[in-house]
Amino acid sequence: MRAHSTSLLLLAAVLPLAAMAPAQADVVVDCAGGAVTVDQSNEIVTVTGICTAITISGSNSVVTIPDATALNVTGANLDISAGVISGAAILGGGNANVSATSAGSLDIPGANTTAGFAGSVGPVSLSGGNATLTAASADSVLVTGPNTTAVFAGDVRTATVRNGNVSIKAARLGATSITGANNTIVAKAGQKLVIRGGNNSARYRTLKSVKVIGVNTSVTVKRGKTKVVVRGTNNSIVVHDRI
Score class of each variant (00 low, 15 high):
R203W: 05
T132D: 07
P123D: 08
V221N: 02
V27F: 03
Y204E: 01
F152N: 10
S140N: 12
C31A: 01
I65G: 04
A131W: 00
T6I: 14
S218R: 13
G224H: 03
T64W: 00
V27R: 15
R205W: 02
A136L: 14
N216T: 05
A136I: 00
G198A: 14
V36P: 05
T6Y: 03
L71C: 10
G232L: 12
T176C: 03
A25R: 11
L10A: 07
A21W: 12
V219T: 05
V156L: 12
P109D: 11
A103D: 04
A136C: 00
T184D: 05
S125N: 15
H4F: 12
T176E: 04
T184R: 11
V230F: 10
H4N: 01
V229T: 15
A181T: 05
N60P: 00
L91K: 05
T148H: 14
G129H: 10
A3T: 11
V194I: 07
V98F: 15
G34E: 08
A70Y: 07
S127C: 02
K169V: 15
K211L: 06
A150Y: 14
A32P: 00
S218H: 10
Q24G: 07
N235C: 08
T48W: 01
L10K: 13
L133Y: 07
I50R: 15
V124P: 04
L71A: 11
I54V: 14
I195V: 13
L193E: 03
D139M: 10
D30R: 02
S61T: 10
G122V: 09
A202V: 09
A135C: 11
K225S: 14
T37E: 11
R2L: 09
T176F: 05
I44F: 02
L9T: 13
V156F: 04
R2Y: 04
A131F: 01
P146Y: 10
N183A: 01
P16H: 10
H240W: 05
I50T: 15
R157N: 09
V194M: 02
A3C: 06
V229Y: 11
G129V: 08
P146M: 12
T184W: 02
S99K: 14
S137Y: 09
H240F: 07
V143R: 10
G164L: 03
A32Y: 03
T217R: 02
G154R: 15
A18T: 11
I44C: 00
S177C: 00
K188N: 14
T55E: 15
S41C: 01
S7F: 09
V63K: 04
A96E: 11
L71G: 04
G116Y: 06
V161S: 00
K227L: 07
S137K: 09
I50A: 15
G180D: 03
G92Q: 08
G58T: 09
M1Q: 07
A32C: 01
